[in-house]
């Protein structure tokens, strides 16, 4: 796998992904860009910097032992007598959802084998179960059937997958960071779905000649000897992972002051946001940004840095109006004014 740290440029996308790992409450990332701009490579490579998580051993949903109230039905039953569950630690993963996935594969369905052998109904977990506690990546999400996208976003927002089909009724935790990528030339997502993504990044191929050369040479080097190449970047990768782990523990202690919250609300109102998701996401992202930098204080600069990630896909432009009513460049001015 191509090393995360060896990817040239695309800093914004990397930042967005990392912030989401630090605080999954941010609500996922949508990556828009033409083909061949390292969308998938970067997202898959993210796995290398993901922190390890502790979960209950042998649980298909990898329940979090710290939150008994959020256990899956199996764990709830197994540990109802107050037994302390055995735990194990494994790294977070990037789980991919193939475009051809059907509803039952995504959400889970009736376990036919069990029915045929025992005559009892049993739930067979789907991709959402695998995704619990991980990153769920959907390439070309704009081509996915709408109802499946709805389902993904619902689970991502609530942290729960609620299945009601084939006569089985089942609820299990499904808390994951949804990462979608798409090529806007093939049509856009419904605007209402856009709002459900915490962040979006629009990426372009590098224009700078020097950078382009670097992209090509690194790729060639990697193909020639992947092992040596990866080794070269191991230290960098390790460093980022350390930073993420640190930020994750740091973020709990970060308080956001009222002034900053008001600034976020001001931005939202200025940019014509209707719902409250943008406001909340901005604050969470700014906090994660501060934590990533190793600070316990969130500043206006954090807000300014992440605001475009949160706001740009939610701008109430007329879909076809290139001259949108608002310019994302106004963020700075707006914060100055405030």
């Amino acid at each position: 796998m191509f090393p995360f740290t060896a990817i040239v440029g695309q800093e914004l996308m990397k930042k967005a992904l990392i912030l989401n790992v630090i605080d999954p409450g941010i609500g996922g990332v949508l990556v828009k860009g033409e083909k061949g701009t390292a969308k998938s490579t970067t997202i898959r490579a993210l796995e290398q910097v993901l922190p390890p998580v502790t979960h209950i051993r042998d649980c298909p949903f990898r329940c979090d032992p710290r939150h008994p109230e959020k256990y899956c039905p199996y764990c709830t039953e197994k540990y109802s007598d107050g037994k302390v569950p055995e735990t194990e630690t494994s790294p977070m993963k990037v789980v991919e959802l193939p475009l051809s996935a059907t509803e039952d594969r995504v959400a889970g369905t009736l376990d036919i084998e069990s029915v045929l052998q025992t005559g009892k109904k049993k739930f067979e977990p789907g991709i959402l179960a695998q995704a619990n506690g991980n990153i769920l990546y959907v390439d070309e999400i704009n081509l996915l059937e709408d109802y499946i996208v709805d389902m993904l976003l619902d689970s991502a927002a609530m942290g729960v997958n609620y299945v009601e089909r084939e006569g089985v009724s089942f609820t299990h935790p499904a808390k994951f960071v949804l990462v979608g990528s798409m090529n806007p030339e093939e049509g856009d997502l419904r605007p209402q779905l856009l709002d459900r993504f915490g962040m979006s990044v629009e990426i372009k191929g590098e224009k700078n000649l020097g950078m382009r050369t670097e992209v090509v040479s690194r790729r060639l080097e990697f193909d020639l000897d992947p092992y040596a190449f990866t080794e070269k970047y191991r230290a960098d990768t390790e460093e980022i992972r350390e930073r993420i782990v640190k930020a994750k523990s740091l973020i709990k202690d970060i308080r956001t002051d009222r002034k900053l919250i008001e600034a976020a609300a001001y931005l939202s109102v200025y940019f014509g946001m209707e719902g409250h998701r943008a406001d909340i996401t901005m604050i969470r992202s700014a906090r994660a940004n501060a934590a990533y930098a190793g600070r316990t204080e969130v500043t206006k600069d954090d807000l300014e840095e992440i605001a475009p990630l949160v706001l740009s896909h939610r701008l109430k432009k007329k879909p076809f109006d290139k001259t949108s009513d608002y310019d994302i460049q106004d963020v700075h001015k707006c914060l100055e004014d405030f």
Partner: peptide, 10 residues
């Protein structure tokens, strides 16, 4: 309203 929106975030 900035104030109420801020309350929502908090």
């Amino acid at each position: 309203e900035i104030r109420t929106r801020s309350d929502v975030i908090e």
